[in-house]
Amino acid sequence: MQKKARKTRRQLLASKAAVQQQLINKANALTNPLETLDKFHEYITTDYTIKLSCIRAKDAQPECLSWIFDIMERNMKDMYEQSTWGWDAAEKQAELTEEMAWYLIASCNDKFLGFSHFRFDIDNGDVVLYCYELQLESEIRRKGLGRFMMSALESMAYQNQMLKIVLTVFKRNLSAIQFFYTLG
């Protein structure tokens, strides 16, 4: 009788990494990760009927990119300047338009109201949907849109077999900490 060869730790890790990369590649090969999630195409408040769309950052129209950079600077420049990272507009633009970046965009009547910048990635050995940004215009905050967008991201993560959503929040951004804490 022949003994079955046991895989070494290195072989097991290589096999796991290959499976993870296949999941990331499959998620990134999608045209629109939101497409089959019908309940996340529209969000209705008392004042707005908001459409959600999902596109690759590299496919975003110039007016969309311009608005994204503008809202990032309006909402986050001070936080970055107060951190050890500092604010570097060119570096932020490069991050926001990186090859693997996706946008979840909320708009109403051709007006941009919010966006999330995210990627399907590997973080600390896990396949994740990494939420780099969630930014809303001030007039739409505290109306449930941020929660709705995070639910859409969670559903996209689940649909694509990502283990979790990962994000980073500045310690000084108390409202964001409270928001994400309430989401669990």
Rank of each mutant, 00 (worst) to 15 (best):
V166T: 07
S151M: 13
A176Q: 04
L167C: 05
L145Q: 02
F170C: 03
S155L: 05
I105Q: 01
I50V: 09
R141P: 01
Q20T: 08
L23S: 03
L113C: 05
G125R: 04
K77P: 03
L52W: 01
I122E: 03
A101Q: 12
Y80V: 06
E73M: 08
K7A: 12
V19S: 13
S66M: 08
I68Q: 01
Y130E: 04
I50D: 00
N25Y: 08
A17I: 08
K111Q: 14
M100S: 09
V127N: 02
S151T: 11
T182D: 15
T182A: 15
R9E: 10
L113F: 05
S175R: 12
V169N: 02
Q178M: 15
D126T: 12
T49K: 09
Q159D: 12
E81C: 10
A18N: 14
L145F: 06
Y130K: 05
Q135H: 09
Y103Q: 01
E91D: 12
T182I: 13
L174N: 11
A106Y: 01
I165Y: 02
S83Y: 04
H117S: 05
H117R: 05
K143I: 07
S151Q: 13
S151H: 10
E137H: 07
I177V: 15
L113R: 00
M150K: 03
E139R: 08
L23C: 07
A17G: 07
F170V: 03
M149L: 08
M100A: 11
R74V: 08
R172M: 15
F118G: 00
F120C: 00
M79L: 15
F115E: 00
D59C: 11
V166S: 04
Y103R: 02
E98T: 15
K111I: 10
T31D: 13
K171Q: 14
G125T: 06
V19D: 13
Q178L: 14
R147Q: 11
K7C: 13
R119P: 01
G114S: 06
E95K: 07
Q21Y: 06
S151L: 13
E133K: 03
R147I: 08
T45S: 10
F170Q: 02
S15W: 11
S138V: 12
A157T: 01
L37A: 08
I105H: 01
R56Q: 09
N32P: 02
Y48R: 11
A90R: 12
R56K: 14
G146F: 00
A5S: 14
L163Y: 09
Q93N: 12
K77Q: 11
E73I: 04
V128Y: 00
